[in-house]
């Protein structure tokens, strides 16, 4: 099986004072090794729950999450995470922030090698020269770049991102999309990106999974065929092919929100 991530029939409900709140209902997602999966869906449909399940931070009520052919029961060292909040540790420099996962995953790695590895990644995302700055001295976009470096510094097989670009302005976001492609070209990883931005999902994703409203199930899967060869470019978003994909996704989201004459969700 070439799928690195496999989510099979995952059903989950949160306990609340008003009884169980089902968030996922028979979710199916498969991501082949090296591919980039984007997940979109209405607000509050359990997308963040999905990230925590893949990371092994929680267990589903029913169903299975497989990573690399192994059932996920608890957190593993081969996962990297990035959130909408860049979660920088303010008391560490940017370099020390990026090194953090290595301190956990590779405690025996020599200090010199850790620094070299972090410096290499920071240079790759355009943060060369900022190694010794404090996070508070950097802009939001720069902090998010550093956060991405930290998420992949230990060469995880899976990079899980929960709306990492959601709080950034439009231009910074597009810059970071480009950075994401450059990182993937040099540092192959399998990625799951939770996003609210359909253009982002089409620009970054190889597949786009549309989740239905809560409780979420896989409603639609779009195989992205991006116009042009090689490295994706922003101009591609303004082609008829991209427009068609976006129209399909928008329609699916409307169905998921129950605002369309399609199959009712509620």
């Amino acid at each position: 099986m070439a799928n690195l991530i496999e989510i099979k029939g995952v059903t989950h409900a949160y306990k609340t004072p008003n009884g169980p709140l089902p968030v996922l209902d028979g979710l199916e997602i498969a991501v082949p090794e090296g591919e980039f999966a984007a997940v979109v869906g209405p607000s509050g449909c359990g997308k963040s729950t999905l990230t925590r399940l893949i990371a092994g931070l929680m267990k589903p009520d029913r169903g299975e999450v497989w990573l690399h052919g192994r059932l996920v029961k608890s957190p593993r060292k081969t996962v990297g995470m990035a959130f909408q909040n860049p979660v920088m540790l303010e008391w560490r420099t940017i370099l020390q922030n990026v090194i953090l996962p290595l301190e956990i995953v590779a405690p025996s790695m020599p200090r010199k090698d850790r620094i070299a590895r972090a410096e290499e990644l920071l240079a790759l995302v355009g943060l060369g020269g900022f190694e010794d700055k404090r996070p508070s001295e950097l802009s939001g976009g720069m902090r998010q770049r550093a956060s991405l470096c930290r998420a992949i510094v230990h060469k995880p097989d899976v990079l899980i991102m929960d709306e990492p670009f959601g709080a950034l302005d439009a231009f910074t976001r597009e810059d970071l999309w480009q950075t994401m492609h450059e990182l993937r070209a040099k540092e192959p990883f399998t990625a799951v990106l939770i996003t609210h931005d359909l253009r982002e999902s089409v620009y970054l994703g190889d597949q786009v999974f549309v989740l239905s409203g809560r409780p979420a199930t896989t409603q639609y899967v779009l195989d992205v065929t991006y116009p042009g060869d090689g490295m994706r470019r922003l101009e591609g978003l303004y082609t008829p092919e991209a427009a068609a994909m976006l129209a399909t996704l928008r329609e699916q989201i409307q169905i998921a929100q129950g605002r369309h004459p399609g199959p009712a969700v509620h």
Binding site: S74, V79, F83, L100, I104
Partner: peptide, 28 residues
């Protein structure tokens, strides 16, 4: 914030490590 805990928990860090590396300095 749960994210602070999650970046280390997802790497299999122990509660004590999370306390020492994140919770303690953040509370200073």
């Amino acid at each position: 914030e749960p994210e602070y805990r999650d970046i280390l928990r997802s790497l299999g860090a122990s509660r004590f490590t999370i306390f020492r590396k994140i919770a303690l300095p953040k509370t200073l």
